[in-house]
Design a protein around this nucleic acid. Structure first.
Lengths: 128, 128
DNA sequence: TGAACATATGAACAATCATTCATATAACGT
DNA sequence: ACGTTATATGAATGATTGTTCATATGTTCA
């Protein structure tokens, strides 16, 4: 026997069924939502943001980025792997060095949008 | 005595000083980068993305969102607090219920950009 | 005022993740 | 071939974080 009131333990019943049904019909699938979140998750790290911003000004090799950000070559390389795997940056081999640059124009647009959001007094991280 | 080659232990010397100097001059401050990363970090969670997507279709109260996403009222409330504190959603009181809705048009634009990025075969989370 | 309902919140736990350290791969100069 | 340089990577670790559980706040109705 299952309870009367709760269909699923812990999960509440809806208050406004029409709204819920309507939204449920318009909601994208979980796969899409997951991909979207994973994409933003990559931008949700200060080091990666700084790498992307740097590359928006000029292509750079790993050691230069590491020096610019005052971080270890290993740390930068790990993050570049994440960015490369996400197709946000691309690599160009030149001798011993490997030059990275932005792979997607959308990246700059998105950063631009985030910038606009901050400008309009959205999320304030440092200055509370 | 300090080493000759390495100014800072662990941090490498730049290979292309001109590039580094140029980019360093254009780079935003760390505060800005940190705020930007914090902003994207908020979008980097599937639950929060689904909440924002749902609210882009209609304002909803907490229990409705919880039911829609098949999650606990507590979990949703916690995430709504994050979104509210980041000024991404706003709350409207109506009796016992509290209706949430998007607070910023940029949110939709940003989600749109992320969507475009995925469309162009950027980050593929589920469908590899 | 008391019961029922809607939401918020604090502490705890599990899972995720960025960095470090050590080491591997790869390319260049000699 | 050897040493040097540039980058990549695997394992370990410390920090962050999303969810759960229990409970608190606040609203409505009787």
């Amino acid at each position: 026997m299952i309870q009367n009131r709760e269909e699923v333990p812990g999960i509440p019943e809806p208050l406004h069924c029409e709204t819920v049904e309507s939204v449920k019909g318009q909601m994208p699938g979980n796969d899409f939502c997951s991909s979207l979140a994973d994409f933003f998750k990559i931008l949700g790290d200060m080091t990666r943001v700084r790498i992307l911003l740097a590359l928006s000004f000029s292509e750079m090799c790993v050691l230069d980025i590491a020096f610019l950000l005052g971080m270890t070559q290993s740390a930068i390389s790990h993050q570049l792997r994440v960015l490369r795997h996400a197709r946000l940056v691309k690599a160009r081999k030149a001798g011993k060095s490997i030059f990275y640059s932005l792979d997607d124009e959308h990246v700059e647009n998105i950063v631009e949008e985030g910038f606009e959001h901050l400008r309009h007094g959205g999320t304030r991280g440092a200055a509370g």
